Computed example of a mutant assay.
Amino acid sequence: MQSPSRDTLLAQWQDQEQAMRTRLAGPGSLPLAQVSELTPQEFFEGIGNGELPSPPIGTLLDFVPIEWSSGLFVFQGTPDARHYNPLGTVHGGYAATLLDSCMGCAIHTRLQKGQGYTTLDLRISYVRALTADSGPVRAEGKIVHLGRSTALAEGRIYDVDGRLYATGSTTCMILQPRG
């Protein structure tokens, strides 16, 4: 089977992003008590279908969720000059935030109702600079290990041509329900 052409794949990525942007509600957050009443699937589906507010960080850095399933989460964004550092490339914090988000959300997809998480450790390796010419990029996070008290995930940022921009790994603490 032949792989889709670059133009076809780029059009698919752009269509997926636009479809998600159309569905997302405005930015906001929910009280922790309300989030803890939802399963991870209910939480992410609620965001993805516009029933729950979209996370404000996505608005600030202009990225959206594209795909999620048990142990996997993918965000997409298109870096531009708003994200530049003084040296004329996208600030490393953009990639770090995308990776922290996709890896943390991948972990969240596997938690039990009422559990939460927080990042304990975040490691990023930059492979090449992101610029406004990079086009859309995807940040894909996958769980490596989910334990009782900690979880580990890996992530990578790549473009439509499969070029790797950064990789990351995280350790998250699993927070148990209160009471």
Rank of each mutant, 00 (worst) to 15 (best):
C105I: 14
A81S: 14
P65C: 02
G88E: 13
G93A: 09
F75L: 13
I107D: 12
W68L: 01
P55A: 01
E67V: 01
A95R: 04
P53W: 02
A106N: 12
L98E: 09
A106L: 11
T118D: 06
L98Y: 07
G116I: 00
T89K: 05
L120S: 10
T118S: 08
T78V: 08
Q112T: 10
G71K: 07
W68I: 02
L99I: 14
Y84W: 14
Y126N: 04
V74Y: 06
T109N: 13
C105P: 06
D80S: 09
S69V: 09
T59A: 12
Q76N: 03
H108S: 13
G104A: 15
E51I: 10
N49A: 07
L98V: 00
G58A: 00
T97S: 14
I107H: 01
H91V: 12
P86A: 03
P65S: 03
T78I: 06
T109K: 13
T109F: 11
C102V: 15
T78D: 02
L122G: 01
P65I: 02
L111S: 05
T89P: 00
L120T: 02
L111I: 11
I66Q: 04
Y117D: 01
G88F: 08
R82C: 05
P53D: 11
T119M: 12
A96C: 11
K113Q: 13
S69T: 15
Y117F: 14
T89R: 05
D121C: 07
T59Y: 01
Q112I: 01
Y117W: 14
P79H: 00
E51P: 00
R110L: 15
L122K: 03
S54R: 07
L122R: 02
Q115K: 02
I57R: 00
I57V: 15
N85C: 14
H83Y: 07
L72Q: 10
M103Q: 14
L87V: 15
G50M: 02
H83G: 06
T59W: 09
L98F: 07
K113P: 02
T59Q: 14
D121E: 13
P86K: 02
G48F: 10
K113W: 01
L99R: 10
G48M: 14
L122Q: 07
D100K: 14
C105E: 14
R110A: 11
G88M: 07
G114H: 08
G114W: 05
D121L: 07
T89E: 09
P56T: 06
G71R: 05
A96K: 11
G104Q: 12
V64G: 00
L52M: 00
G48D: 06
G71V: 05
N85E: 12
N85D: 15
L61Y: 09
Y84H: 06
T89S: 13
T118M: 08
V64I: 12
L111F: 10
L120K: 09
R123L: 00
L120F: 11
I57H: 06
I107C: 11
I66E: 04
